[in-house]
Amino acid sequence: MSCLIRTLLVLLLVSVPLANSLAQDLTAGDMKSLDGQVQEIKSDVLGIASELSNLEERLLYPSNTQVSLFVALAENEDFRLDSVQIEINGELATHYIYSFKELEALQKGGVQRIYTGNMTTGEHQLNVTIMGKLKSGKDFSESDSFVFSKGIEPKALGLTLSGPGIQIGSW
């Protein structure tokens, strides 16, 4: 009896994975073939996305009126950025609240395009308010105002945020 059960148990244990691996082998080829096709369609859709972005930019933000604002964190900053609020000429342009993943991406050196809009040529006023928490656990809020000039070419402004302040520069 003991031998019988042991043998049966062993046989069952051995035969099941074998049957499985056979089934998996049969479909492995199909999986690989589909994988190739999935890669192709990914490539196609990336191409569409790229064309669409260009079209959108031309249509929504023509080069002569385009203004873009980018946000980066200063190097080795360990404060927790919670939100950034941007006003242009006294009107709210954006109020962005950061998720953990987004903050981590900024801390690793990523640059976020926080705003893209249209503006006439001439001078404009920019008010930036950042809120967050310092490493000590203390909440902090910082505001600063800047004046920038918009010409006939697209304008890109970079905001570098740090615990103590905000820096801005043209691109």
């Binding site: 980066a72 395009r113 000039s149």
Partner: peptide
């Protein structure tokens, strides 16, 4: 209120992506 400088700005990169870390520490292309 401060005036935005017309000079081109450079972001400092905390780290570049993946294996490229160490190869660049300034970001010149937004």
């Amino acid at each position: 209120m401060r005036r935005v400088s017309s000079s081109v700005m450079v972001f400092l990169l905390g780290a570049c992506f993946a294996a490229s870390s160490g190869h660049c520490d300034e970001l010149n292309d937004l």
